[in-house]
Design a protein around this nucleic acid. Structure first.
Lengths: 371, 371
DNA sequence: TCAGGCCCTGAATCGTGTC
DNA sequence: CGACACGATTCAGGGCCTG
């Protein structure tokens, strides 16, 4: 499967192989202007301190590997500038790069990209359908990661397969936010002890969308932080050539084994059944945020016997209970449960109208503009 | 409605007003450590092309594109550093900032925030339910903007109304991606010609979530790029004090008019689901003193696997540990910590009942007859 | 074979008040 | 200021076992 391509008669391109070593040195040893796309998942510099436990007291297996530790932002910036410069040299004139990161590092990476002369085309948000919650209730659930897509140069003739992405998205233009699950189950590679082989393995679905959208069959895709080789695996399936660079022996071994078992797709296998979505859940609070109901406004029970007042956080306060629309409704009726959506009404032009009408309005909007 | 607050007897804080002028100069004229929250929607219109001049006024030569770019990014970075420094000076020790932007500027803003000593808490993606499509089909639909939420200092005791946000989201922890429509319809302010009064007016729903989540009633919220005053309008509705700074006369005029017509929600509506941490502390010993539990009585663990005996001083003695309800619970489970209130049960009419019920009884009494 | 319950896990910058 | 003790805190999904 390994191909060697002559570039300008000078040096050869080691296609479909994993190169060992520091990515900056290795990249500088490859011929310039030889890659169509670079996908990079660099260390995030998470700066984790203590241990973290779930509410059930189990411990979170954190990313504390040596390769993710940097002495300072300045050190991380230096590292970023250096690998970006080496990467840019490798790109063909119409080439492009994707870099993924979290709020710990992505702002520094984005600024460095711009400073290096890359031209940002989009930032794309990977919205995780199943992220790890925030266990201490001190912040928002960290439910997304950010990818930056940039061309080598301003005005570069980058590849963008608009129609293919639109097809992937059920006929609607692909947006800058992608909802995809994290990598779990059988796709998640394990070592001999049954532990995860790599702490941050990316899902193939993510790379699928990246490569379908911004490369063509036969293109050369380089990944300087290859890890367990998701980029290579998806590139191979899609009929692209890959070059991986990975410093850690253990990751290279896992990736080699993985890639050996990957088969190029036939067309038919490509279509992933679009998961049909259940009726989207609409939090009652959204009616308040959107100004459809106002804090302080009175709601009336369907039977006219009870009323309650809307609060700014989307809870109700009744005569002797406060909480969600369901909880207060149940309390009013002395019932074990209650569907607040059909129980409560608001006043519109003097008439009582069920609040479920408002939920239906929001759902109608969501149906018109899905995703 | 305008309030003036004396800060340290020195200078006054012009609450609920819109200040005219350059935000950096105006901020530097206000007393330090006087704002609880800053919300900023800075400009990113860089004029990267055309009539660009270097700081020394020499015209940029079209040949050295890289320098051109460097110059303009450098100028934007300088501007960003300056207004962030002025903003940080204004924040109280437990203060925090939100900044919103797009891929054109947010990476530079994020890096500058970190460099200035702010501590990023989350990046939050505003996912637009109705974005403008990409008409030329050359990129992804730009369907989101990014907000960065950061505390003034690492370790700062920032405000986060976890329970209120969870309530807004129908009982599920609020995530870092928010789906909200853009500002249209009646909410979108128009000028006398019927054109939109401001090109980037933010929806009130966005500010509602920001302010409910990261401020308390009576807090001071400052917006250095006030525009048409969405921050002020939502702050006023929610019973927060605002300070707006805006350079453009036309925007100030629109905002003044808007704010005059905004009404504060009534008090009960502003009350928000409280966190358990805010509830009064009840020593376990009080249950024994009051005779709700008797010395010698057995307690049983929630899972039924352990038991312990109550002692007269409000400690427990288990099979192989003695101490507080928390310590003995942790020892039984071999866990690093344990909430004894929810872990231990007592027997009532043959059934196991969590001792937390008894704590709730005491708290209810305290609320009825406060000391 | 299927449904239901239990267990485990995921790029995480995840306390606070009192003495 | 540090040390110590209290006690608050999770969502989605996959695997595996049992009935």
């Amino acid at each position: 499967m390994t191909k060697m391509t002559q570039i300008g008669g000078a040096s050869a391109l080691p296609l479909n192989t994993i190169l060992a070593g520091d990515c900056i040195e290795v990249m500088n040893g490859l011929p310039e202007a030889s890659a169509d796309l670079i996908f990079a998942d660099p260390p995030y510099n998470l700066q984790l301190k203590g241990e973290l436990h779930r509410p059930d007291n189990s411990q979170v297996d954190a990313v504390d590997d040596a390769w993710d530790r940097f002495d300072s932002f300045a050190a991380y910036d230096r590292f970023t500038r250096d690998w970006l410069a080496a990467a840019r040299r490798l790109l063909k004139p119409g080439g492009a790069i994707w870099v993924i990161g979290s709020y710990h590092n992505i702002f520094r990476v984005g600024a460095a990209l711009q400073d290096a002369g890359f031209w940002i085309l989009n930032d794309v948000v990977w919205r995780k359908s199943n992220p790890m919650p925030n266990f201490r209730g001190k912040r928002f659930t960290n439910a997304h990661e950010t990818m930056i897509w940039a061309s080598r140069d301003e005005g570069g003739k980058y590849t963008f397969n608009y129609e293919a992405l639109k097809a992937l998205n059920e006929g609607i233009q692909m947006r800058s936010d992608w909802v995809l699950p994290i990598c779990t189950g059988h796709e998640r590679l394990k070592d001999d002890q049954g532990d995860k082989a790599h702490p941050t393995q990316k899902p193939e679905s993510l790379l699928h969308r990246v490569l379908v959208g911004s490369t063509n069959p036969g293109d050369v895709v380089l990944d300087p932080f290859f890890g367990t080789g998701t980029t290579g695996a998806v590139a191979k399936m899609l009929g692209r050539d890959y070059i991986g660079i990975e410093r850690e022996e253990a990751y290279r071994a896992v990736a080699e084994k993985r890639l050996k078992n990957v088969r190029k797709f036939d067309k038919a296998a490509l279509e992933v059944s679009a998961s049909k979505r259940a009726e989207p859940r609409v939090p009652f609070g959204q009616l308040v945020e959107r100004g459809m109901l106002r804090p302080g406004e009175e709601l009336y029970s369907m039977n006219g016997r009870h009323k309650a007042k809307v609060r700014a956080d989307g809870t109700l306060i009744g005569s002797d209970a406060k909480g969600s629309i369901h909880q207060v409704g149940a309390a009013c009726e002395g019932a074990p449960s209650c569907n607040g959506w059909t129980y409560w009404c608001y006043k519109k032009d003097g008439k009582r109208v069920p609040i479920d009408i408002l939920r239906q309005q929001i759902r109608a909007e969501m149906a018109e503009r899905p995703n």
